[in-house]
Amino acid sequence: MNLFYQESRVINDKSSLHKRIPASGLIEHRLKYLRRKHKAGATSKSKDFICLMSESPSEDEYEKKSWLSYSSTPLYQVAEYMAETFRLRSEELRNTDNLSVTLSQWPRLIDTPGMIDQDFSVRYPGKQEIVLHKWDSISKQILKFAKKTKLDVCREIGITQNINEWSADQINVGSLILLPYLLSKSAYTKGSKKRRKITGGQSADFFIKFIKTNEDLEEFRLSESVRKQPFVLCLGNLKNLEIQQAYIMVERRLMLAESLVKAVDTCFKIFYVLQLQFPEECSGVWCFFDHTVFQTNEIKSPTSSVLSLGSQIDLEERPNENLLV
């Protein structure tokens, strides 16, 4: 049984394929080059996508898919072939009835750093680094909003340190922990005769799952059967806001992230790259990132709690201490 798959849907029909580029340079240079190309061509991507998707995948694309199935180096070649097979991969992900099998046919998408970002940048040129560039400022604005709500969230979560004494690193982490509690006020389950309100704690557990450092990560990976969509997994101490390691878990595959912020950033992008729905338990959190942070314009009717918090976020605000007043 495929425990992690939920029927996919088309989220965005406005993607374009990378053009062929010279096979040279380090992978990060390659990705920067691709990002510039996509940003420059953003205005005409709708027309390009229609023309692109009207064509059948070429034999060359299938051959490069085969190469990617067996090769993980050199990294610049992986980045180039992944770019040139974007159309084929998107088509297969959109039409799959078994996501786990399809991902196994595209292993580099999950096990090679930067490939999720690269595919996301095709769909949304210029938006792939917003969280990493803006989170210092956004996190302080979330904290300021949380203080105004007068909710005793920290006590409910079990965080021991006073919120007014958080360090900059604790604010970056703590603001993410607070989000499900700030955005669950208008969250309800759907598709049943009797709607059930989703609590902040339930939403938080589906957004970021904390496990103790002495727990067996591999055992958790194999036994988890509750969360069907991608989610963030952390090893650390929630009470002290200490993160030792952060992962994204998708279809029983673990992707190591450099930080909790990067894990959340990547997890959000995975929903769009794999063309999945947000889980209803924490949809408010992901809708906040969609509507307020990335501003993809995919969420047409955000909940009142998302709009309320979003109205307090200024992406152009600098991360200075005045935000905490």
Rank of each mutant, 00 (worst) to 15 (best):
L274E: 05
E321L: 12
F268H: 15
S259V: 06
F289G: 07
P319K: 08
L260S: 09
P279K: 03
I313K: 04
K262I: 04
E281W: 02
D314E: 12
C267K: 08
V293L: 04
P319D: 14
S259D: 13
L315R: 10
E258P: 03
T292G: 05
E280S: 11
Q295S: 09
A263G: 11
V293C: 07
C282L: 03
L315T: 10
L309N: 11
E281P: 06
A263Q: 04
D314W: 01
D290H: 01
K269Q: 15
D290R: 01
C267L: 02
G284N: 14
D265M: 07
Y272I: 00
C282W: 07
L274K: 02
S304L: 02
P319I: 03
F288E: 08
L315D: 13
R318N: 12
S304I: 11
C282K: 03
N297G: 05
G284S: 15
V306S: 01
S311M: 00
G310V: 06
L276E: 14
D314I: 00
F288H: 09
F271V: 01
V306K: 07
S308Y: 03
D265R: 05
T266M: 15
H291P: 02
L307S: 08
K300T: 13
E317W: 00
F289M: 05
V261W: 03
S311Q: 13
Q277V: 10
S305L: 00
I270K: 01
Q275C: 09
S283D: 06
Q277E: 15
K269S: 09
Q277H: 11
V273P: 05
E281L: 04
F294M: 08
S301E: 14
S304Y: 01
K269V: 01
L307A: 04
T296C: 07
Q275K: 13
E316R: 11
P279Q: 09
Q277P: 00
Q277N: 15
I313M: 07
V293I: 15
T292E: 02
I313D: 11
V293T: 04
F268I: 01
N320F: 10
C267E: 14
A263R: 04
G284Y: 00
T296G: 00
V285R: 12
F278K: 06
S259W: 07
Q312S: 15
R318M: 12
S308E: 15
Y272H: 15
E258S: 15
S259C: 04
T296E: 08
C282T: 12
T266R: 09
V264A: 12
E280A: 03
T303D: 10
T296W: 11
P319W: 01
H291W: 13
T266S: 13
E321V: 12
I270T: 13
V264M: 12
V306Y: 01
E316W: 01
S301Y: 12
L260W: 09
N320T: 15
V306W: 05
C282G: 08
S305C: 14
D265I: 02
A263W: 10
N322H: 13
G310K: 04
K300S: 13
P279D: 14
E321I: 15
P302I: 04
L307Y: 00
I299A: 00
S311H: 10
S283G: 00
P302G: 05
C287M: 09
S311D: 14
V264C: 15
N322V: 08
L309M: 09
E280T: 14
V264T: 14
C282V: 05
T266W: 10
V264D: 11
V273S: 09
L274D: 08
N297F: 02
S301V: 03
